[in-house]
Nucleic acid binder design. Structure first.
Ligand code: SF4
Ligand code: SF4
Lengths: 145, 145
DNA sequence: TTTAATTCATACAAAATACTCCTAAATCCG
DNA sequence: CGGATTTAGGAGTATTTTGTATGAATTAAA
C-alpha cells in the first residue's frame, strides 16, 4: 500500500523539515536538506522544482541560494501540498483505482471508501504545515527513515 | 493515489463478481469472468492463481473447470482478501511509505495516519465478501470500469 | 569581470509494476 | 486411448516510477 508516492513522501518530508526549522533566513539549501533527510539530491531538486512551479515555494539561484516558502506555513494546508505533489484530483479519485464511477453507479465498496476518503480530506484540509512543523519542533521528531 | 494495486483491484472485482453470482454450481470460468469484467485473461488467471495458493480459492482444471471459493463467503473478510492480494503487512505498514518507525518515534503525521489506518482496518475486518456480494446483487451494482 | 555556488532543464539508467505469451498438467468426453 | 478444454507456471515484453548524470542559466562574491 502506498497512499502517497515516493516523490510525494520526499517532498512532504522536505517541507516538514523546512517548516520546523524556520528560524533561518528563509531559504534552505537543497543539498544540505537532501543529505540531512537522506534523499537523492537530484531527485529532491526535481520535486522541489515542481513545488516552486506550483507556487508553493520560491527559489533563488547562486551562492547561498535555495528554496523557501512563498506563502506563510499557516496558509499552506497538508491538502494543498498533497494536491501539488500527487495531482489535483487526489481527494476525488477512487482510492481503489477504478475510473469513471461515483455516487450514481457505485461499486459495493463505495460507502466505505467515501467515508475513509472524506475523513482523510477533512483532516488534511484543516492541518497546516505550521501545525505539523510546530509539532515536529516541539517533540524533536525525526524526518528521516 | 492508489491504495490498492492494479492486480489487487482486479482480484477484488473478480471475487466480488463471484460472490454476487453464487447461485451457480460453484465454479467460475476465468475466461468468461475476464471478458465480463474487461480484465486481461492471462493477467487475471495469474492473480486468481495466487489466491488459490493462499487458500482462498480452489481450482479445477479441464472442461467446465474454473475457480471457486474454498471457504464460505461469510467467512472471508475484505481484510483477508486485501492481505492476500497486497501482502500480509498491508494494515501495519505506514500509509506514507516510511519504513521502520512507529509509536515510539513517530513523524508529525503519525496521529493522522493511525486514525485513518485503524478506521480502514476495522471496516475491512468486519466486512465479509458475502456482505459485499449481497449488496452487489440486490442493488444490481456493476463491477466493470 | 571572473569564478564559484546554486537552482533549472533535460536526457538517460535502473527498478518496480503491469501485462502477454507459450508450454505443461489436469480433467472431461467420445 | 486421444483430443479438446481449462488452469498452472514460468519466461518474456511494455509501461511507469524512481533515481542518476550532465550541462545551462542565474546570482553572489572575490
Ligand atoms: S463506486 Fe467503487 S470503484 Fe467507484 S469510486 Fe466508489 S469505491 Fe471507487
Ligand atoms: S511515524 Fe510517520 S512515517 Fe512512521 S509510521 Fe507513523 S505516519 Fe508513518
Amino acid at each position: 500500500m502506498r497512499v502517497i508516492s515516493k516523490s510525494g513522501e520526499y517532498g512532504l518530508r522536505a517541507l516538514l523539515h523546512m517548516a520546523s526549522n524556520q528560524d533561518n533566513k528563509g531559504f534552505f539549501n537543497i543539498r544540505e536538506m537532501s543529505e540531512g533527510l537522506d534523499i537523492s539530491f537530484h531527485f529532491l531538486t526535481k520535486i522541489l522544482q515542481v513545488l516552486t512551479q506550483k507556487g508553493i515555494l520560491q527559489s533563488y539561484k547562486g551562492p547561498n541560494g535555495g528554496v523557501g516558502f512563498l506563502k506563510k506555513t499557516e496558509e499552506i494546508t497538508l491538502a494543498d501540498l498533497v494536491r501539488a505533489l500527487e495531482g489535483d484530483d487526489f481527494f476525488d479519485k477512487c482510492l481503489l483505482g477504478l475510473p469513471g464511477c461515483g455516487d450514481r453507479q457505485p461499486c459495493p465498496m463505495h460507502a466505505y471508501w467515501m467515508g475513509i476518503r472524506n475523513n482523510l480530506k477533512s483532516e488534511f484540509e484543516t492541518t497546516s504545515l505550521a501545525d505539523l512543523g510546530e509539532n515536529t519542533r516541539l517533540q524533536h521528531l525525526r524526518l528521516i527513515p
